[in-house]
């Protein structure tokens, strides 16, 4: 097992090496239309962060994608609870969930564009893409509830609302947490992809599209860095809040 400080040092070394290789490749290629180095990207990022329209685009996209994720989270929980309570519901839902999982995101985006405005598309696509992941994880968590505790609750006729903190939440928390982690990354990727395809104005996807059209490769990379950073921050914030909510609910009794 690699000790923690060594692991951290190795990680920094790995990132530094990637940056050096990237810079060398950019210098070697010497074509700003194909590849720019990390220094140019950092400069583009600095310039973008000083621009009010960047923050406006971040706010716009963040609002829509996080709304899509939160809606999917609530719907997935409700559907998983219904499926856990009734096998018939689970079987009825299975084809829909499989269909959403198997259809390529691009197909959904193009079809949804016929019905929805670009503004709503990001919310809809991120909702649709993460729903199966969150549903599957929530259902798995609920199915993992300790059968001995469920029997105990049956004998003592414990009402459902009192079973939740002691029996269902401890089973649900780990799998919902890991599902949320995967889903948070997915919702940003698919949401921004939808914005790019729909050329949604004043959004991150729209900015990414503009950067591509005007061959602003530095901006293209800088926007990618922004997306990764926001996605990581949102993931950390959401998981922190999720842990707090679970703890509060579990200790409510």
């Amino acid at each position: 097992m690699v000790p923690d400080p060594t692991r951290k040092a190795l990680r920094i070394l790995s990132v530094a090496l990637a940056l050096v290789l990237w810079q060398l490749a950019a210098l070697g290629l010497h074509n700003r239309l194909l590849l720019v180095g990390p220094i140019q990207v950092a400069l583009a990022l600095w310039r973008l962060l000083g621009d009010a329209s960047t923050w406006q685009a971040i706010g716009f996209t963040f609002q829509r994608i996080s709304l899509g994720f939160l809606l999917a989270f609530l719907v997935a929980l409700a559907l998983a609870a219904a499926s856990a309570a009734s096998h018939t519901v689970e079987v009825l839902l299975r084809p829909y969930i499989l269909a959403v999982q198997s259809v390529p995101v691009a197909s959904f985006i193009v079809i949804a564009l016929l019905w929805l405005s670009g503004e709503k598309l990001g919310t809809f696509i991120s909702f649709l893409m993460v729903l199966p992941v969150l549903y599957a994880n929530a259902l798995q968590g609920l199915k993992n509830a300790d059968p001995q505790l469920l029997e105990m609750a049956r004998v003592f006729r414990v009402p459902l609302y009192r079973r939740i903190p002691g029996i269902y939440l401890p089973a649900l928390a780990p799998s919902l947490r890991s599902g949320s982690r995967v889903a948070l990354g997915m919702c940003w990727k698919s949401g921004v992809a939808a914005e790019v395809i729909a050329v949604t104005s004043h959004s991150i996807g729209g900015m990414l599209y503009d950067a591509k059209v005007y061959l602003e490769i530095g901006d293209l990379f800088a926007w990618t860095v922004i997306i990764v950073a926001i996605s990581a921050c949102f993931e950390k914030l959401f998981l922190f809040l999720l842990d707090r909510v679970f703890r509060a609910l579990e200790t409510a009794w």
Partner: peptide
């Protein structure tokens, strides 16, 4: 068959309300 995450009081309250 106690809920490990709950206190003794929590386990009793879960059943007793």
């Amino acid at each position: 068959r106690l809920c490990r995450n709950l206190t003794v009081m929590g386990n009793l309250r879960m059943v007793l309300g």
